[in-house]
Simulated assay, not measured.
Amino acid sequence: MSEGSGLRYGWTTGACATASTAAAYTALLTGTFPDPVEILLPKGHRPAFALARERLGDGFATAGVVKDAGDDPDVTHGALVSVTVRPAEPGAGVVFRAGAGVGTITKPGLPLPVGEPAINPVPRQLMSDVVAKVAAEHGGSGDVVVEVSVDGGEELARRTWNPRLGILGGLSILGTTGVVVPYSCSAWIDSIRRGVDVARAAGIEHVAGCTGSTSEKVVTELHDLPGEALLDMGDFAGAVLKYLRRHPVPRLTVAGGIGKISKLADGHLDLHSKRSQVNFALLAAIARDAGADPDLTTRIRGANTALEALQVCTAANLPLGDLIADRARQFCLETLRGAPIAVDVVVIDRAGTIVGRAGA
């Protein structure tokens, strides 16, 4: 259980692939599948996985486990992760292959070279370790081809960042600890970082952190940006700004709805409704400093939503959207701490109409 929350931990695709590798290689050497199969993860966890697929043939063995992401809303929860192990040429070591449902790297900037299967470095190490362990226990050479597949992985990958990152044909096999922490959003934040890496490797000099699909569409049309330049920021403004602070590009556009950008203007780096709220007193103060009369500031302070505050200001010919954009831009620059990045902010309403801009 996740400490303090009562939510269940789960296991990454990398952990599932490691367990499948251990079971398949054991069967290849002994003719018998261990079930359940236990593995050791980097932080000392020793989960045991029940096998959902077993197949032993001439010169190969396949084992598969169903991924349990615990109580995390993971897109791969319930997916069958399988590994087929075959002998490789003497001295080859562990050779990784992408089976059905596992993607292939097609763009630079990721932790693996172009053309490699999208099996990340830590899962590769975990699988290599269990190959060595099984080889030592059962007299194998450790020279094997490890082919990882995920049933339905190509379809599931369309719901991830993979196509934008240039990972084509399926999912990535992920995980640094092997453990999925419920609602940690670590995979989303990692995808933001990989998005920056891919954009930089492609020589893209202007990226956009967008809170959703509507703001992505607006920014694409406004700046004629390619797909590789779009960072699906969601609520994680801090992840975008902090990573760009260390890995800068010449220009950043931050785009989102009036509510989320209002939170950014108030100094929040996490824009989720459970972790930050629109500060109507701040909006009223911004409007007052721009010349709003006491009646208007009272109406803003009592507004139900940031959009309502915007609407009453628009009716009074006060550009609250621009003022919020400017304050959010200043906070972005403060967070970037002098990194050589030009920043502009675009604020939209629910229809996708631009209602505020700064730094353009």
Rank of each mutant, 00 (worst) to 15 (best):
G170W: 01
H247R: 15
G321V: 04
E308R: 14
L336E: 07
V85N: 02
V346L: 15
G175Y: 08
P113Q: 10
E3P: 00
A135H: 12
G153P: 11
D190P: 00
E216F: 04
V249M: 12
R55Y: 00
G57K: 07
R245E: 14
R55Q: 13
E38I: 01
E221D: 12
L56H: 13
A325I: 10
S2C: 11
G152V: 03
V75H: 04
A303Q: 13
C185Q: 13
G14V: 03
V240F: 12
T21C: 14
G91S: 12
N162Y: 10
I341D: 04
I119P: 06
R97N: 05
A239L: 10
V83C: 03
A24C: 04
G153Y: 04
E334L: 13
G6M: 12
L241I: 01
L271W: 09
P108F: 05
K67W: 05
G169Q: 07
T12N: 09
G359K: 11
A290S: 14
A309V: 02
L80T: 06
A69Y: 08
E334K: 15
I39D: 05
R251Y: 10
T62W: 01
G64H: 09
H138E: 06
L225V: 04
Q330P: 00
A316P: 00
L231T: 00
V179A: 07
Q125L: 14
A22R: 15
D326N: 12
A15V: 01
G175W: 07
G99K: 02
E308G: 07
G356T: 08
L126V: 01
P42I: 03
E54H: 09
R337C: 06
G234T: 01
P121T: 05
G259T: 14
T160I: 07
M127P: 07
P108G: 07
S128Q: 15
I300L: 08
F236P: 01
A27H: 05
G4N: 14
T211L: 09
R159P: 00
V114C: 13
S273C: 04
A281W: 09
R288K: 15
A285W: 10
A229Y: 07
L174M: 11
A19R: 02
L225W: 13
L29E: 05
G195V: 01
S184Y: 10
G267H: 11
A255I: 05
A201P: 14
E205C: 03
S273A: 15
V131R: 04
V148F: 09
A118D: 11
V312H: 10
L51T: 02
H247G: 05
L252F: 04
D270E: 12
G302Q: 15
V66L: 14
N279E: 13
G115C: 04
A19T: 02
G78F: 14
